[in-house]
């Protein structure tokens, strides 16, 4: 190869390299700038927050807004509520979905079971606004309104269709022979489930749990309308008290609460980037 073509190729490479990093910078700016702005607002003293231009490197960083959230807004309580509800939802929800997904796949030759599966998938299309009011009345009537069991039940219901859809696909990839071998060795149903199926499904279960965790954290409609005293973080952020400012948005507290929610999400996304990508691509997400 001639010297000149070598140089030209090199030049092209450099140019496309530059273009890559310019695109990178634009996307990174658009995505990260608001996130960074929320963060620095949360550590800026409220008095310095209402001034223009914005100081992107606050001179007097403070945790005052966070302290206020803890002592006056009950931040720790809301974190506790969020953790309890999401934790139990993931545990119980994943458990019944594994059983369901297994049943739906292995017995799909039964007409009734197959119909039941189609029913689960079809319910994905039913929006919350359509079911909200009757469900609200019902929850009140049976005493599940504003209770942990009631909320957890609705949270679980919201993750069922997506979880079943993904897990059922994975059950299909487990060779029947493995189960048959275990059955010949005398393993009963639960033993096969525990020693054969579960270990093989671990990666799929992890992916589903990661995405469900995010979906549950994002759930706003359910905790807003089906509870009152049990407040989770996503609801708390829209109901913060106004301190001494007249602009209608308690931005000092909102940004602090926003960062409390964003921090775990950013960590989560950074750690599980690969699983999340796989999960999204496998199912088209959103419960």
């Amino acid at each position: 190869m001639g010297n000149s073509t070598g140089k030209k190729l090199n030049g092209n490479k450099v140019r496309s390299g530059v273009i890559h990093w310019v695109i990178f910078a634009i996307i990174a700016f658009v995505v990260l700038m608001p996130v960074y702005w929320i963060f620095i607002s949360s550590i800026t003293p409220p008095g310095e927050l209402f001034k223009s231009p914005i100081d992107y490197l606050p001179d007097h960083p403070t945790l005052e807004s966070y302290q206020f959230l803890v002592s006056n807004v009950g931040l720790l309580d809301k974190i506790k509520n969020t953790v309890i509800i999401i934790g139990v939802t993931l545990l119980v929800g994943t458990f019944i979905c594994i059983l369901g997904a297994y049943g739906f796949y292995r017995f799909s030759y039964k007409k009734g079971i197959n119909l039941a599966f189609l029913f689960i998938v079809a319910t994905m299309l039913i929006p919350e606004v359509v079911t909200a009011r009757p469900l609200y009345e019902f929850m009140k009537k049976v005493g599940l309104f504003d209770t942990y069991p009631g909320l957890i039940m609705l949270y679980i219901s919201s993750i069922v269709p997506f979880t079943i859809l993904i897990l059922r696909g994975f059950v299909g990839e487990i060779p029947m022979v493995l189960e048959e071998a275990a059955a010949i060795d005398g393993a009963g149903f639960w033993q096969r489930m525990w020693y054969v199926i579960l270990p093989l499904m671990k990666p799929a279960i992890a992916t589903v749990c990661i995405i469900n965790f995010i979906n549950c954290l994002n759930n706003f409609f359910t905790p807003l309308y089906y509870s009152n005293h049990i407040q989770v973080l996503s609801v708390a952020i829209v109901e913060l008290p106004l301190r001494d400012n007249m602009y209608g948005v308690p931005w000092d507290l909102t940004s602090a609460m926003g960062w409390i929610i964003l921090m775990p999400i950013i960590l989560f996304v950074a750690i599980f980037e690969k699983q999340i990508m796989d999960g999204i691509m496998a199912g088209g997400v959103k419960a």
Partner: peptide
């Protein structure tokens, strides 16, 4: 790049909404 674009997707809409309410404020 793939990691950071997941952030908007993973955050609750209400957080984006509350931040946007203030982000579009004329003065601050």
């Amino acid at each position: 790049l793939r990691t950071i674009v997941l952030i908007p997707w993973a955050m609750p809409s209400v957080v984006a909404g509350m931040a946007a309410k203030w982000a579009f404020n004329n003065d601050y």
